[in-house]
Every structure is written in structure tokens, then in C-alpha cells.
């Protein structure tokens, strides 16, 4: 047990060092930092506008009104942020594996997943966090929901568990690079599903509902956990199940990733 704590301390210490260094270098490229933060915000603004236009023409989508949709959108933005900020390196794993650069990660006396994944931090994506907070607060006020410590605590817990799903999906899909030569297409394919997290699942038929709940579990990113706060009449056991399901998926995809990494032997040279 004591050993275990020592290990955790060791990893936290190293992560902190990498984080501080990364921030320092990001700050030294001020223009780069500002422009990429700005482009991130604009990207979100564009999809926000598409929702806004939609609601100029319809009063609701499957009984979900404008503010409820905004809540869902904000929730999904927040739940996707940890993946974007802390697991950004996963997106380029396929390139590194394909070109053989991944071999340089195999020789450190440290957990290979930790070493690879947390090598980079995409701090620019933090802009998305603030948009998410703004959207949730705004829709919260407009919907006239209660504010108390328990509900805020519930919101934080459900956001944290929801964020595990995208992390698990990206880790799992990126780990496929260890077995198939070009996993880039697969990564692109799955990154598209992010957009579906913003819609209430009542718009899907049973087949897609099943797929998006259990096969590609993006329903847990925003829709199912949101039911704790809005549209509580749609709340079912699935939302509660999500809390545990995320942890299981994350553990499973981590194991697959490590298995792939350990059997990786580089390119021919």
C-alpha cells in the first residue's frame, strides 16, 4: 500500500513537471496560443449558430426546447474537454506507430501509456471549457433549475463520469494502430460521432439508440447524464449504469492499449 502511494506520487510529480514545462513553452508562442484558442472558440460558435438557426424554425426537437438543447450542448462540450486537453496525443498515435517514432517511447522505466499520452497537453482546448460553463449556466438560469450544493456536486460527478467515455473511445480506437497499419481513417470516422452527442437520443430509432448506447457509447457523453437534471421523465436505469460503465470501458481500453504497445516492435529500421 505504501509502495502504491509512492508510485502515485512519482507519477503525479512527473506529470506536474511536464505540465508546467508545456505551459511555459505554450506561453512563449503567444500568437500561436491566441490564434488556436480563437479558432477553437469560432469552431464552437459555428455549431452553436446551427442550433440557433434550427430553433428559429422549429420550437422544439422531440419535446426538447432551445434552452434544454443548449444545456445538452454545454454538457457535451464540458464532458469532451478532458479528452481534448489531456489525451490529445492519442490522435497522432497512428502516425507515430506507422512511421516508427513510437519506438522511442519503449525504453523508459515508466508506464508506457502514461509516458506517451501525457507527453503533451493541449491547453488551447481549455477555451471549450469556458464556453461549456457559460452555456450550462445560461440555460440553467433560463430553465429555472434549482441551485444547491447537492445538485452542483451531482453535476460535477456526472460530468466527470461522462468525460470518461470519450477518453475510453479515443484510447481504444487509437490503440488499433498497433494492429492495423493505417488507423487514421478509423480515428476520423469516430471523431465524427462527437457531433451526435449534442442531440437528445429520442430522435434516434431503436437500432441507433442501441448502437450509441452500448457499441459506440456516445450517449453517455451528454444525453444520459443530462437526464439527471432535465427531462427527468426520460431518466432510466441506463443513466445510472453509465457511471460504472465508463470506468469499465476506460479500464478495458487502457488494457488493450498497453497490450498493443508492448507487442509493438517498430518499423524495419
Amino acid at each position: 500500500m505504501k509502495n502504491y502511494f509512492k508510485k502515485v506520487k512519482y507519477y503525479i510529480h512527473i506529470y506536474r513537471m511536464i505540465l508546467i514545462q508545456d505551459l511555459k513553452t505554450k506561453m512563449s508562442f503567444r500568437a500561436d496560443f491566441l490564434i488556436s484558442s480563437f479558432s477553437g472558440i469560432m469552431l464552437n460558435a459555428a455549431s452553436f449558430i446551427s442550433i440557433w438557426i434550427m430553433f428559429q424554425n422549429f420550437s422544439s426537437i422531440m419535446n426538447w426546447n432551445y434552452y434544454e438543447m443548449l444545456f445538452l450542448y454545454g454538457f457535451s462540450l464540458l464532458a469532451l474537454t478532458p479528452q481534448l486537453v489531456f489525451f490529445d496525443n492519442s490522435w497522432v498515435l497512428c502516425d507515430k506507430v506507422f512511421k516508427g517514432d513510437f519506438i522511442t517511447y519503449c525504453f523508459r522505466p515508466i508506464n508506457i501509456f502514461f509516458y506517451y499520452t501525457f507527453e503533451k497537453i493541449n491547453i488551447n482546448a481549455i477555451g471549450q471549457f469556458f464556453i461549456g460553463v457559460t452555456l450550462i449556466t445560461y440555460s440553467w438560469i433560463k430553465l429555472g433549475l434549482d441551485v444547491n450544493t447537492i445538485i452542483v456536486f451531482k453535476l460535477i460527478i456526472s460530468l466527470l463520469t461522462a468525460s470518461l467515455f470519450m477518453i475510453a473511445i479515443v484510447i481504444f480506437i487509437s490503440s488499433m494502430s498497433f494492429w492495423i497499419i493505417n488507423a487514421k481513417g478509423l480515428m476520423d470516422f469516430f471523431s465524427k460521432f462527437k457531433d451526435y452527442t449534442r442531440y437528445p437520443f429520442t430522435i434516434f430509432n431503436n437500432f441507433f439508440k442501441f448502437v450509441f448506447s452500448f457499441i459506440i457509447p456516445i450517449g453517455f457523453v451528454a444525453y444520459y447524464p443530462s437526464l439527471f437534471f432535465i427531462h427527468t421523465e426520460e431518466l432510466s436505469w441506463i443513466s445510472f449504469f453509465g457511471v460504472f460503465y465508463g470506468i469499465i470501458l476506460l479500464y478495458f481500453s487502457y488494457k488493450v492499449w498497453v497490450k498493443g504497445a508492448l507487442q509493438y516492435s517498430g518499423t524495419g529500421s
Partner: peptide, 14 residues
């Protein structure tokens, strides 16, 4: 991991 503590590696190209 134990082995990695005892060795060092340099790749000219990486």
C-alpha cells in the same frame, strides 16, 4: 521497466 533503468538508447534519426 527494470531493464530500462540499466540501459540508455540513442537513435541517430529519432
Amino acid at each position: 521497466k527494470q531493464h530500462a533503468l540499466n540501459i540508455g538508447i540513442v537513435f541517430g534519426q529519432r
